[in-house]
Each structure stands twice: as structure tokens, then as C-alpha cells.
Simulated scan of single mutants.
Amino acid sequence: MIYLFAIVIVIGLLYYVFSGRTRVEPLQKALISVRQYVPAIPATAPAHHWSDNGRYASEVENDSIYQPAIARLAGEHGPGNADEKCLALLVCDDANPFQDKAIAVFIDSQLVGYLAHSDALRLRRTLGRQDLVGQLTSCDAVIRGGGLWNGKRLAYAVWLDLQPFD
């Protein structure tokens, strides 16, 4: 009898705790808001051009939502991998609702992804030391990947020629 009473109490407590919860929005709605957010590119010329002597060692984090834009920028490259060199603009994205201290990467006015959070923090410290806080900067970039494998196009990656962060 005491066990039955305990079970009723536990069920009642669970109902009380979970009945007042707000509804969770569907993931599709959250993804749509991610797709709709694009930071503005400042209308000024880049204040500084970074270089790491052609090493292209910093990869841009990109999600599948950026792949169509990156594919267009890579151009036609047949079944092999792309190796398209271009200029990247680095935009300090202080209004980003998804990541604090984000740095957006644009190529030909197309958002292609973001610096990894740790790289963005280090670059922002470097910008501060060089009196370039919040200013538009640039670097060379290369789009690689996108080769055909089993009849399907592989993902593209954007690599930046950024100097090592100290």
C-alpha cells in the first residue's frame, strides 16, 4: 500500500514539474533563422591584409547551408578537387546571436562561414594590439574539395592564409 502511495506521489510531482514547461520550437524553424542571419559587410576598404606566406593553414568553419555559395565560388572544376584562390574579407560580427565575438568570412560578398571560436578570439586580440578593433580586414583564401566520389560531389572547404596567432 505504501508503494502505491509513493508511486502516485512521484507521478504527481512529475506532472507538476513538466506540465508548466514551454513548448520547444521545431528544429526546422531554428535552422531557418540561422539561414536568415547574415552580418553586413562594412562599406570601407580593408584596413589590413593578413598573410602567412601562402600556407593556408586556417580552415573556415562552414555548415551545409554555406556549401551552395562555396560551390558557386569554386567554379567548374570537373571531377577533381577545386583549388580556387580568392580574396576573403574578415568581418567582426558583434551582433551575431549565435556566437560571441564571431568573425564572419566573406568571399565575393557571399558568407562562406566563420572562423573557429578560438581563432576568432585570438584574431580579435591581435586586432586590439594593432589598433584595428572592429575594422574590416582581408586575407587570401583558397577553396578546396568538391571532387566527385561515387557519383556525388564531396564538400568544399575554405582555407585562409592567416598569419599564426600569438
Rank of each mutant, 00 (worst) to 15 (best):
I32G: 01
T126A: 13
D52Q: 05
S109N: 15
D161V: 06
P164N: 08
C139L: 10
L89Q: 12
Y3N: 11
L115P: 11
W50N: 06
I143A: 08
I65E: 02
L73M: 09
R144L: 14
A43Y: 03
W149Y: 12
V34W: 11
L111V: 09
V17E: 07
G54C: 07
H48F: 15
F106N: 04
D93I: 12
W149S: 13
Y3D: 13
A6I: 15
S19Y: 11
Y56N: 02
W50K: 04
R72I: 12
I143C: 10
N62W: 00
A88Q: 04
H48P: 00
Q163E: 15
D63W: 11
A69S: 14
L4H: 07
P46M: 05
D161M: 07
A43E: 14
L162N: 03
N62Q: 03
H48L: 12
P46G: 04
L111I: 09
S19P: 02
G128H: 09
T44V: 15
L160M: 04
Q28Y: 09
L160V: 06
I103K: 00
E84C: 12
T22N: 08
T126K: 11
R23T: 14
G146Q: 04
A95T: 15
R124Y: 05
E25D: 11
Y3L: 14
C92H: 07
S109T: 15
G20V: 13
V142M: 08
G54F: 08
D119L: 02
V34P: 00
N150K: 15
G78H: 09
R153F: 08
G12V: 06
L87W: 05
L123E: 02
R55N: 09
F98G: 01
C86P: 03
I70G: 01
C86T: 15
G20W: 01
E61V: 15
L148F: 04
S109Y: 09
P42R: 02
L160H: 02
G20A: 09
G145C: 08
I107T: 10
Y16R: 13
S109K: 15
A74C: 07
A104P: 09
L31M: 14
D140N: 14
L73P: 11
L148D: 08
Q28H: 07
K29M: 09
D93H: 05
G12Y: 01
L27Q: 10
F18P: 05
G113Q: 06
K152N: 13
G75D: 01
L13D: 00
I9S: 10
F18L: 14
R35M: 12
A102H: 04
E25R: 13
T22C: 00
D140A: 12
G128I: 08
V8Q: 00
A40P: 07
V91W: 04
P46H: 03
A71V: 02
G147M: 08
W159G: 00
V38M: 12
C139Y: 09
I103Q: 00
I70E: 03
R129K: 13
F106E: 04
L162Q: 02
I11Q: 01
A120L: 07
D94H: 07
W159D: 03
Y37K: 08
T137K: 02
Q36C: 03
R125T: 11
E84A: 14
R153Y: 06
D93C: 10
A47S: 14
V38H: 07
N96E: 06
E76Y: 09
R55Y: 01
Y37R: 06
R35T: 14
